[in-house]
Design a protein around this nucleic acid. Structure first.
Length: 201
DNA sequence: AACTCGGGGCA
DNA sequence: TGCCCAGAGTT
């Protein structure tokens, strides 16, 4: 474990590496963002980006999904794995959006987490990326990078990591930190053969 | 806290 | 061929 000051230095260096970092997922609005992030569970961003074009072409909005069925959605996302669960999530979530939120994506954590297939991580992405509200999503990349550099304990849970990092950085850096850690984790601080030493002091 | 979902990419 | 991947729900 490094000191809080050192942890802040490391995070700031990683943020500085990606001044223009955006999410890798392709989306045109907050609904597509919500679905794209939900689909990204336990798979890669590339896999999700391969299916979203045809998926949203066929189902452009919550209403389109809501009058559909999980079985009709499945073929469009079959290649990403976990597709039966995810098709049900999309269908149920879309119906919840229509019934409870006027077909619009809610902008607070409580309502977002009430939706099928949306947990704390996805809710935080929608809040920060979609609504520009300070939130810090912790996924496998963020978790691995923070542990690898001793910013959090080796056995820290996602919620603990969220708390530690948001305590280290000011709120206006959370979104950048999230983006940067994703890119750093994908490209440099990889699960195997990480090359952090070439980029961090 | 452990279990389940799951096809594709890569070593 | 085996392991891992932008998690969330259920038991």
């Amino acid at each position: 474990m490094v000191t809080k000051e050192r942890a802040r230095e490391i995070l700031e260096q990683i943020i500085a590496l990606y001044p223009d970092a955006q999410t890798i997922l392709k989306y045109r609005n907050n609904f597509e963002l919500l679905i794209a992030v939900m689909l990204s569970a336990q798979t890669t961003d590339m896999a999700v980006n391969k299916v979203t074009k045809k998926l949203f072409e066929r189902f452009p909005d919550p209403a389109s999904f809501a009058v559909s069925s999980p079985e009709e959605i499945e073929p469009y996302i079959q290649s990403i794995g976990l597709y039966r669960n995810k098709a049900k999530y999309i269908y149920t979530c879309s119906n919840q959006l229509i019934k409870n939120f006027g077909g619009k994506v809610p902008s607070n954590r409580k309502d977002l987490e009430s939706l099928a297939g949306i947990g704390r991580k996805t809710a935080n992405v929608v809040l920060s990326v979609g609504f520009n509200i300070p939130a810090f999503p912790v996924d496998t990349h963020v978790s691995r990078v923070c542990k690898h550099h001793g910013i959090v304990p080796p056995d820290a849970t996602p919620l603990e990591i969220e708390k530690i990092v948001t305590d280290i950085l000011p709120a206006d850096l959370w979104k950048q930190a999230h983006h940067a850690l994703i890119f750093f984790g994908r490209n440099i601080c990889t699960p195997r053969n990480p090359k952090c030493g070439e980029y961090l002091i």
